[in-house]
């Protein structure tokens, strides 16, 4: 069956791979983000790959004023409505240490901006009695680490929000998937030292699609991160606070 998917942060490499996989199944796409030129290029690509419709619309996590046209487009779409959020930003922890005001933007990009959208979107899922939301969080949200805890905190907040939304929408036939990627080979990690076991964006997209089909609740991608994070979460705090991992 063909559905409509709105993809927030569609310019991310992971989102591109996910949008392409959906296109090959013939779904209709609303590609939302800030770089309109790039979104239009992606829309052309998705159409050529089989999307029944693909259009580019503006979405800015830090500015609600562009949201309305997306909701208008969704209202008019037929069938099940779905959303996937790939928005995120990760300034270096040291930059945040120098300028704590950056925290606000981190929270907006990783948590409040996406949540603002999803909160207005949830009633549409309830009204239509179905639909899936994919929220991309991060393994960084599983525990605060010295090198990355501002970003981690915003992702952790997003995870908690998604869990609550899952609890809510499950009652109305909807579904919410929390995706926790490990290291992924994207613009965000390009050139950062100390990356290991880096996954291709297409691998992440494939895992997400599988999770959508199986209505999974929380996934780690690649899957081995579930084990790594289990270990990291079990380290007792008196020891963990001395580690720099």
């Amino acid at each position: 069956m063909q559905h409509t998917w709105v993809i927030l942060g569609a310019t991310s490499a992971m989102a591109r791979a996910f949008a392409r996989a959906l296109s090959e199944q013939g779904h209709a796409l609303i590609l939302a983000g800030r770089d309109m030129d790039d979104l239009k290029t992606l829309a052309a690509d998705c159409t050529l790959r089989g999307a029944s419709d693909a259009r580019a619309l503006r979405f800015d996590a830090r500015e609600a004023k562009h949201d309305a046209p997306i909701f208008d487009a969704l209202e008019q779409a037929e069938g099940t409505l779905n959303a996937a959020v790939f928005i995120g930003s990760m300034p270096e922890q040291a930059r945040i240490d120098d300028n704590p005001l950056l925290l606000q933007g981190v929270m907006q990009d990783n948590f409040t901006g996406p949540a603002r959208f999803l909160h207005a979107f949830a009633p549409m899922i309830e009204a239509r009695g179905g639909g899936t939301i994919v929220g991309v969080g991060s393994v960084a949200g599983d525990r605060g680490r010295v090198g990355n805890y501002a970003y981690g905190a915003s992702k952790s907040a997003f995870h908690t929000y998604l869990a609550g939304l899952r609890n809510r929408l499950g009652r109305a036939g909807g579904h919410v998937i929390t995706v926790k990627p490990g290291f992924v080979d994207s613009a965000m990690t390009w050139g950062i030292k100390g990356m290991f076991l880096v996954a291709a964006p297409a691998t992440v997209a494939r895992d997400i699609l599988r999770a959508v089909n199986k209505r999974r609740n929380v996934i780690y991608t690649p899957g081995f991160w579930r084990l790594i994070m289990l270990i990291i979460r079990t380290i007792p705090e008196p020891i963990f606070k001395k580690l720099s991992i």
Binding site: T11, A13, D35, D37, D38, T41, S186, A187, W190, G191, I192
Partner: peptide, 28 residues
């Protein structure tokens, strides 16, 4: 980041260099 400092080679792997690689994901 824009640049990634990597060691890389052609398919034959007989000649390798280490240098900066940019990998733009968009035209801008």
């Amino acid at each position: 980041m824009i640049w990634n400092h990597l060691t890389y080679s052609g398919w034959g792997r007989a000649l390798a260099v280490t240098g900066d690689i940019a990998r733009p994901e968009r035209i801008s």
